[in-house]
Design a protein around this nucleic acid. Structure first.
Ligand SMILES: [Zn+2]
Ligand SMILES: [Zn+2]
Ligand SMILES: [Zn+2]
Ligand SMILES: [Zn+2]
Lengths: 160, 160
DNA sequence: CGAGATGTGTTATATTATAACATATGGCCT
DNA sequence: AGGCCATATGTTATAATATAACACATCTCG
């Protein structure tokens, strides 16, 4: 229930823990966490912030891990399809998942000043919309829930 | 609470009613519903379906109302900023608002087979996420709630 | 070895969106 | 009337996001 991202925390541990968790998950599930895929995941884990595919590609290029768009998009496809990374539709950008492996409908709080993204655990999407959907027989397969606003850090010291 | 879009209804009346409502709103608020803007609105009202900016531009072009992207995007900006049209972030496309003028957090049910979009009235976005947001002091300004799945029509006769 | 599956490298192109500047139109002030 | 401002449109060019298509490498399995 507590959204990670805007609060202070042991970020190095946060990165390492999630990475280990995903590595284990991949080993057990027979998924190939190749160097490019792993590096894209690391880049995203490093920030609690959404990065565009081309931002990521720039970093890969600097590191000699790939220079063309498909390299980044393919890695992102892999990470998203296995739930390690989420796409923020509102921003056309990507953010590491805070609860990888678990099945959940993620909800995001997006700060429009610092671009920070926090992932909140919530049952709202399927639950609330679900009841409305059932009335008409609509079958929900995926829910996008993104709230935009001002994060606590940016609210205190008004930047803009 | 009842989502319009997947249910049978008097669509001609639905279009005309909404258009009249918006015309009135514009007159009272001193907004200029110019020919291009009005036509874009009509095009969107005609379908309970999201159309891409370039789909709309194609129609405008056929009708000699404009041929370059900014024409469509500017009309859409106007319509979106005044709440007459909503953008479906998941699809990078636009749909006429079912409750123009009213302040509401719209939620959408998007059919991945027929591309139909229904707008549901719900308090969930701000309400559910709101409580989580308050815990960390996040101030929600705008909420995107989009559910993807199969609409009742497509569920009955599996098209794909 | 040969066939199939998976991942990467690369070129080219599609799709979505905006910047920037020119032109037109109408209201409004002097 | 003339000048001025705000708003809207026309047009060119380009930015930003995303995918198609094909070549090649590697690995596994029979
Ligand atoms: Zn962290
Ligand atoms: Zn912030
Ligand atoms: Zn209708
Ligand atoms: Zn459908």
């Amino acid at each position: 229930m507590d959204p990670i991202g805007f609060t202070n925390h042991d970020h190095a541990g946060c990165i390492k823990g999630t990475l280990t968790q995903i590595e284990t998950h991949c080993r057990e599930a027979g998924l190939q966490l190749t160097p490019v895929r792993r590096r894209v995941l690391e880049i995203l884990l490093h920030e609690h912030r959404a990065l565009g595919a081309y931002d990521i590609l720039d970093k890969l290029r600097e590191e000699g891990l790939g220079s063309q768009p498909p390299v980044a998009y393919r890695a992102l496809d892999f990470l998203v399809s296995h739930g390690f990374v989420n796409k923020i539709e509102r921003l056309n950008a990507f953010v590491a998942c805070a609860h990888p492996g678990e099945v959940h409908d993620p909800a995001f709080l997006i700060c429009r000043k610092c671009d920070g993204v926090a992932e909140a655990q919530t049952k709202s999407a399927r639950g609330q919309l679900g009841s409305t959907a059932k009335l008409t027989g609509f079958q929900i397969e995926r829910a996008v829930l993104e709230a935009e606003g001002i994060c606590p850090n940016c609210a205190e010291g008004p930047v803009v």
